[in-house]
Design a protein around this nucleic acid. Structure first.
Lengths: 219, 219, 219, 219
DNA sequence: CATGAATGAGAATTCATTCAT
DNA sequence: GATGAATGAATTCTCATTCAT
C-alpha cells in the first residue's frame, strides 16, 4: 500500500511519459472506476476516459477487462503484502505487530479508500470465476497473520490452545467488517479527516484489544 | 435459514402447482444459479431452465432480475433474522447467546451453502447500487448482535469499555471470514459430513472463546 | 437448387409465420447480402434489415455469423446435390447425364445468381478455416460426377484410360470457370434474358462437346 | 512465377538491406500470411512480424493493406504472365504450348504453394470490391490461352467450331480445379516430393489429353 | 528510415425485457 | 397462467492507420 510501485519496464527517459507510465495511469483509473461503479458496472470506455487516453490503448496494455482488474489487484495487493511481510518479520512482540497490521489496514482505507474498496469488494467477485492465483494471494495475507499468531504463541505472548488459523480469521475478519461497514456506509463518521483518523485509530486499538483480552471482564 | 419458508399466498390445492409454488421454485433456482455464476453472470434464462419453467414466466412473478435477488435475500434473510431475534430475546446469558448465533451461522453454511454464498458474496455487490433496504436488513443483524453485547455489558457479563458496535463487528466479521474462507476454498475440510460438522462446531466454539476471553494468556 | 426447400420444423399452421419461416427469411436475406458485399463485408445488421427483422433475432436462430453462411451453404447445396444425385442415378447414357449436369449448373446461375455467387465464391473463403464438412459437401459433387464418368467408362461410352477423378476435375472446373467469368464480369452478355439463356445453353453444349470430343479435329 | 522478381528501384549496395529488399520481404511475408489466414484474417501486424520488421514500416512501402495484396498480385502474377506470354509466342504447335502452360501452372503449385493459394483464392475475394486492373490482369491469362487456341485453330491443329474463349475456360478451369482440389486437400498425394512431381506431371498430361482428344473413345 | 505507441471507428455478440399467441 | 419468439440498447474487443520520437 505504501512502497514504491515497481514500474515494470520503465526506461525512465527524462523527457516524459514512458510505457509503464500509461500502464500505471490505466491501472489507477481502473481502480477509481471500479470503486465507483463496480467491476461489471465499469465500462472500458469509462476507464479510458478517466485515464485520459484513447479507447483502444487500453487493449494495448491489457488483453481484456478482466486482466485490468487482475493486474490492479496483483500489483496493489503485492505492495500491501510487502508491508505486512515486513511487519510480520520484525522483532516486536505479537501485540505490537497486530496493532501495526490493524493500523495499516484501517489507515489504508482512509488514505486510499478506492483501493481498499476494490480489493475488498470487487476481487471476490471475479476470483470465483477466474484466477486461483488471486485466491492464493489473499491466502498469503492470512499466512502472515497466522504466522504472527503462531510466533506469539511460541513466545508465550498468546494462548497456545487456539488454532492460529482460526485466530487469524477472527482478527482479519474483524478488521474486514469494520472496513466494510465503513465502505458500505453502515458506519458513518461525521467530521473531517481528523475525526476519521481518530475513529480509525480507536477502532484499530479496540479490535486489537478485544482480540487480545476478550470481551469478558477480567477478575 | 431454518423455519418455514413463508409462502405468500399458498392455496395448497392437492391437484398441483400453485402460484407460490412456482414462485418458490424460481427463488430456489435463482439462488443456485447466483451461487454458481454470480449475480451478473447469471442469466434469467439460466434461472428459468434451472427452475424448469418457461423463459417469460419469470416476469410474471418478478418485475426484473434485481427483484429476484432482492426477494431471495429478503425472504431467506428474513427467516434467518427471525431466528437471530429469538436468540437475542431469550433469557440466556450473553455467552450462550453468542454460541447459539455462531452455531446458527456456521451450520447454515453447512446445510445450505448456496444460500450463504449468495447472502455473503452477492449482496454486497448489488447493494451498493440497489436497495438500501437490503443494507438496512444486514444492519438488523448487527443490531441484534450489538444488542446481545449491550445487554451482556449491562448484566456485567461483558466488558463495558468497548463500543458494542465495534464488538459486534469483531464477532460477526470473525464468523464471516471463517465462512468466506470455506466458501472460497481457502480452508479445505476433508472427510464427510461428520467431519464438516465437527469443524464447524469447533470453529464456532473457538470464535466465541477468542471473542470472550481473548488471545492473551490469563494469569 | 430446385426441389422443395425442406422446412425444418414447420408446424404449418394456416395463420402465418412459423419458426422456420423466419429462419428461412434470414437465410435468404443472408445470401442476398453475402452476394452483394461478400462474407466479410456483410454486416449482421445488413442481414437483419434485409430480412426485415430485429437485430438480435438473428442470434435466436444462429449462433453467429459463420453459422449463417454454413447453414445457407448446407441447405442450398443439399438441394443442389439432390438434383445431381438424381441425374447421376438415372438410366441415361453418360453424355446425356453430363449435359444435364452442365445445364443444371449454368441455369442455376441464370435463375439464382446470388446463390451461385455465394456458393462459388464465399464458401472457399471460410472453408479453409472452418468446417471440413463443407469441404466434404463439395467433395460429394465431385463424387457424383466422377461416378457418372466411371459408369460411362464401364458402359464403353467413355475412354477408360483417364482417371475418373481427373476427368471430373476437368469437367467441373470448366463449368466453374465459365460461371466465374460470368460472376466476375469477365464475360459480358448483352441483351435480355433470352440472350443470356441462349449463351448459357450454348456454353453448356460447348463444354460438354469439348469434354467429350476434344479440341483436336477428328479425321 | 519463375523469372527475376522485378525490384522497382534496387540499388544493390553491398552494405546491406536496400529499399526494395525490405519491400520484397514484406511482400513475401504477406503472401505467406495471406495463404495461412486469408486476406481478411491477416493482420498487418502479422505481416510485419513475419517479415521481421517494425509495425509501422509497412506503411512506408505500401499505402494500405489492400495495396500489399495488389502489389503481391501484380508482381508475382506479372512474372507468371511473362512466362505464359513467352510460351504463347513460341513457334511450337498448340498442343506443345498447352502442355507447357499446364506444366507451368501445376508446377508452380508444387514449388510455391503459398503463391498459388493466394493467387487462386484471395484475388477473387478482393477483386469484386477493388481494382478492376486485377480482373483485367487475370483476363490477360485468358487472352494468352485463348490466343494459343485461336492460333491452333488457324493452323488446323484445333477444331475451328468452338469459341476460343469457351475452350480457354475449359482448359484453365480444369487446371484451376485440379489445383484447388490440391489446395483444399480434396486430393491428397502421399509420399515425398518425387511423388508429388509425378502426380502433377501426370495430371498436366491428362488434362491436356482430355482437352485435346476428349473423353469419347475414338473409333 | 525505423519504431511501436496511440487513435477511434466499426462490428459481433449478449441478454434483460416485452409481447403476441 | 404459460410460452418462447422478438426487440434493440449496450458493450467488449479488433485492427487498419496515423504520428511523435
Amino acid at each position: 500500500m505504501t512502497g514504491a510501485m515497481a514500474s515494470q519496464e520503465t526506461t525512465d527517459r527524462e523527457w516524459g511519459k514512458t510505457r509503464s507510465d500509461k500502464r500505471a495511469r490505466i491501472l489507477d483509473a481502473a481502480i477509481t472506476v471500479f470503486a465507483r461503479s463496480g467491476y461489471h458496472g465499469a465500462r472500458v470506455s469509462d476507464i479510458a476516459r478517466e485515464a485520459g487516453i484513447a479507447y483502444g490503448l487500453v487493449y494495448h496494455y491489457f488483453r481484456n477487462k478482466e486482466e485490468i482488474l487482475a493486474s490492479a489487484f496483483e500489483e496493489r495487493w503485492g505492495d500491501f503484502l510487502a508491508v505486512v511481510d515486513a511487519i510480520a518479520q520484525g522483532g516486536q512482540p505479537a501485540r505490537q505487530k497486530l496493532v501495526s497490521v490493524a493500523a495499516l489496514i484501517l489507515n489504508a482505507d482512509r488514505v486510499r479508500p478506492d483501493w481498499v474498496k476494490v480489493l475488498v469488494l470487487e476481487i471476490q467477485r471475479s476470483s470465483r470465476f477466474a484466477a486461483p492465483e488471486q485466491i492464493r494471494a489473499v491466502g498469503r495475507l492470512f499466512e502472515q497473520v497466522a504466522r504472527i499468531v503462531r510466533e506469539g504463541q511460541e513466545a508465550g505472548d498468546l494462548r497456545p490452545d487456539v488454532d492460529p488459523n482460526v485466530a487469524c480469521f477472527v482478527f482479519v475478519g474483524a478488521l474486514d467488517l469494520v472496513i466494510t461497514s465503513l465502505v458500505l456506509g453502515l458506519t458513518v463518521i461525521e467530521g473531517g479527516d481528523a475525526q476519521q483518523r481518530a475513529y480509525h485509530d480507536r477502532a484499530a486499538a479496540a479490535v486489537v484489544d478485544v482480540f487480545l483480552r476478550g470481551m469478558e471482564p477480567r477478575a
